[in-house]
């Protein structure tokens, strides 16, 4: 069966977060706390938020416990975040290894962050498209924080990913 476009997107998303984590490993612990106004927060906090949200999106489709959490594990190390990103990666492959994912399936979500809130009915495409949107949005903020503080940014767009997979090739003149 050919690879679905959404799976390609999710793989790029996870690759980009992995790359970004590797990129920021060379920063000092003080630099990981850098931020700029108008973004979610520090580099560290934003990376944690990206992966925690990834797990929350995916646990609507399949078991993901225990998940990392911005409130309960705010001091998770980069290694902890990477370990959870691996779970995200495995879950995405598992999700698409089985039956075709129905974009219009409605999921009843009882596990609200605020337990007093009523359940949500969410269509599948919303969750997976938000997964992709959310990661790109917050990685862009980290790019802005790095750039604004005079630090090198990471090349994590789809072109870089496609070149790595040999899916984007420049013609060689002979």
């Amino acid at each position: 069966m050919p690879t679905q476009l959404i799976l390609r997107q999710l793989r790029h998303d996870i690759w980009a977060t992995e790359r970004l984590i590797e990129h920021v490993r060379r920063l000092s612990s003080q630099q990981l706390q850098l931020t700029v106004p108008g973004t979610y927060g520090s580099i560290h906090k934003t990376l944690l938020h990206i992966v925690a949200a990834n797990e929350r999106y995916l646990r609507r489709f399949l078991p993901m416990d225990p998940v990392i959490d911005e409130d309960r594990t705010p001091n998770a190390s980069l290694d902890d975040i990477v370990a959870h990103l691996r779970k995200v990666k495995d879950a995405v492959e598992k999700l698409f290894a089985g039956e075709h994912v129905d974009p219009d399936a409605v999921i009843r979500d009882n596990r609200r962050r605020n337990p007093a809130d009523p359940p949500l009915l969410i269509t599948s495409w919303v969750l997976l498209n938000q997964f992709v949107h959310h990661g790109s949005d917050h990685r862009a903020q980290i790019g802005t924080i790095l750039g604004a503080n005079g630090l090198p940014t990471a090349d994590i767009d789809v072109w870089a990913y496609g070149r790595e997979l040999d899916a984007v090739k420049e013609e060689r003149k002979t």
Binding site: S136, D137, T144, V158, G162, V168
Partner: peptide, 28 residues
Amino acid sequence: PRFEMATWAPATQLIYHGVDHRSQIDTI
């Protein structure tokens, strides 16, 4: 130079690129 690419690359890049730059405007 001519570039060859799988269809998923520009399709995925379109989505990624828009989010990336709208996020920057939001920050501004």
